[in-house]
Design a protein around this nucleic acid. Structure first.
Lengths: 147, 147
DNA sequence: TCTGGATGTAATTTTTATTATAACAGCATA
DNA sequence: TATGCTGTTATAATAAAAATTACATCCAGA
């Protein structure tokens, strides 16, 4: 498949909103920045809304963060967008008649869970605010260079 | 795309070899356990060989681990198989004319690197021996229940 | 020394998750 | 009450992975 960039795009959307407070951003305007189509942006926003990270008014470009950027972690966004999709994937198509195969995959699960937890722990320590701060630094403070 | 199960399958291959020392395992025999085709197994083995995790003799079913299971970490296998493929993916198709978009993705890179490192640190602490031990436990010691 | 079974590798096809796109009902503001 | 945008669903296109095919090469044994 393609590599999923939904997490990156969702962060992009949230950061874009945070950087343009009260700017009447339509899904079309945001889509331009992400260089994609408005429907995809609305899909992401829908997931973010359901997770309580974003508030919006149907029919109007009034989307806004539902929390402070400092209160939104990368893990929050990951959960909102990817649900409980793991970062490593077991092979669930091994030969069920082969005890070795099945049980190796079973054993792997425990260790994949550990890796998942390590990644999620790190993600939970990174906030949208951190990302915005880094953005401002790297953009050399010319943070109002427009779209 | 499909989800990659190469890491899981490569571990499967290594564990299978470790569990059947000197058993003249053909790629076909291993493929049965993984329930896939021999060529795919040989591709995995080729990557493992290039990474120095596995030794083999061309033309003959003599593959064997090149190191003790305790000396092969999950990270070693990941690197052998996936190279430097990251677990989280940036969106590199954002609008280059949008400073915000580009720089948000740039800022994300730093944080994705942190997550990657956390995951890799954990992977480096897990060895093939650990996985085999867990396998034996979960298989309830009937570790010679055959293929 | 020659034969055969298996490897190593490249090329092609099939599968499947993801993104792109289209379509439209419904809402809230003007 | 007309309009612009949202929220959502459905379908098509894209891309990465696994499956499959093909074959040159090797080397152990007859």
């Amino acid at each position: 498949m393609k590599y999923s960039t939904k997490l990156s795009d969702a962060v992009h959307v949230l950061a874009f909103l945070a950087l343009h407070p009260g700017a009447a951003l339509t899904s079309e305007r945001i889509a331009e920045s992400v260089q994609t189509n408005p429907a995809y942006i609305r899909q992401l926003m829908s997931a973010l809304r359901k997770a309580g990270l974003l508030a919006s008014v149907k029919g109007h470009p009034r989307a806004a963060l539902a929390r402070e950027p400092g209160g939104i972690s990368l893990l929050d966004v990951y959960r909102a967008i990817e649900g409980d999709k793991p970062i490593l994937h077991q092979d669930t198509h091994t030969n069920p008649n082969c005890g070795v195969g099945v049980n190796i995959q079973l054993a792997l699960r425990d260790y994949y869970d550990e890796v998942q937890r390590a990644a999620e722990d790190r993600m939970s320590a990174i906030t949208l605010q951190d990302i915005i701060d880094t953005y401002r630094q790297e953009a050399g403070m010319d943070s109002d260079t427009e779209v």
